[in-house]
């Protein structure tokens, strides 16, 4: 009886061990996917990953093709995206966390944001194309704009409709990353201890003063981390830019925000979708550059998070 019970027990323990092995195997599978992905792409990029890649424009000849235009396009578009999305996202999360009363409207906004986070990015692209780029057609077309100020080659150029330009790419990407920024900033603001707010209010500060001088400085590292992570999302996003008409063959760097543009993911898509193997190699090299860029961003975010986790008042 006793021995039987013991055997039963050990069978269970074997099951337990087996399950752990199974878990480790599956987890290893997920991790090895990453390794295989990186290794195979790095292998394909051999021979194209050099300084020329960064300094040349796209070309019909794979050996001469480079990502200069794409890199500058990405820099311009993402800068605009960040300049728009971070203030709006932070403001929204401050409002929802600090000012909003818990009523139906607030709940509706919250529900709305979580639903927006689930909308496919290509749908944002369609919104951007129709509303920002074409502006419903009310201002005519790009070739015959309704409003045009300045010289198209100068920095201070303005035109309506906006057309498939950098500013439209930036606005559209801002909409894509806005829900992500809001979620992460809200978390950062929520983690500021309430005692700090109460102390500030108790010495006569208004709500706004409390937010500006107490809550925001405390939440800044968290907000910044979220902002950096969402920027890296914007850098890798291709579908919305594809829809609004980011051009694929561009041999100049932009002069102003109304210029046509291409971006690194678009350029990679273009090369990857060509039948010639040589272009796949260029695409692989561009992917490596893109991944290094993203790693830098995510690494910075991780360092900020790590550094300030220690300093924060508990």
């Amino acid at each position: 009886m006793n021995s039987k019970k013991k055997r039963n027990h050990s069978a269970k323990q074997i099951q337990d061990k087996l399950f752990i092995c199974f878990c480790v195997a599956v987890t290893f599978l997920s991790v090895s996917a990453l390794v295989v992905l990186l290794v195979t792409i790095a292998k394909q990029s051999v021979g194209h990953l050099d300084f020329d890649l960064l300094t040349s424009y796209p070309s019909r000849h794979p050996e001469k093709a480079g990502i200069k235009a794409a890199m500058w396009g990405t820099v311009w578009v993402c800068t605009i995206c960040v300049l728009i999305a971070i203030p709006i996202g932070t403001a929204t999360s401050i409002y929802l966390e600090e000012f909003a009363r818990k009523n139906k409207l607030t709940r509706f906004i919250e529900l709305n944001i979580s639903n927006l986070a689930g909308v496919p990015s290509i749908v944002y692209g369609i919104l951007g194309l129709t509303v920002f780029a074409r502006m419903f057609g009310v201002f005519g077309t790009v070739n015959d704009p309704f409003v045009e100020v300045g010289d198209p080659t100068s920095f201070w150029y303005f035109r309506l409709p906006l057309g498939s330009s950098i500013i439209v790419g930036g606005l559209t990407l801002a909409l894509v990353v806005l829900p992500i920024i809001i979620v992460s900033s809200r978390e950062a603001i929520r983690s500021v201890p309430n005692s700090l707010r109460e102390a500030s209010l108790a010495i006569g500060a208004t709500k706004w003063e409390t937010v500006r001088k107490v809550v925001l400085p405390q939440a800044a590292p968290g907000i910044l981390t979220g902002a950096i992570l969402s920027t890296s999302r914007a850098i890798g996003e291709a579908a919305p830019l594809l829809v609004i008409g980011g051009f694929l063959f561009i041999r100049f760097t932009p002069a102003n925000v109304f210029d046509d543009f291409t971006a690194m993911p678009l350029q990679i898509y273009n090369w990857a979708s060509r039948p010639q193997e040589e272009f796949h190699a260029v695409a692989a090299a561009a992917i490596i550059v893109l991944l290094i860029l993203l790693l830098l961003f995510n690494g910075t975010a991780a360092i900020i998070r790590y550094k300030f986790q220690k300093v924060k008042i508990k």
């Binding site: 997920s30 850098i235 990679i268 991944l291 993203l294």
Partner: peptide, 8 residues
């Protein structure tokens, strides 16, 4: 893995 662009 989550941060890798989908085009990749």
């Amino acid at each position: 893995l989550a941060g890798i662009p989908t085009v990749v």
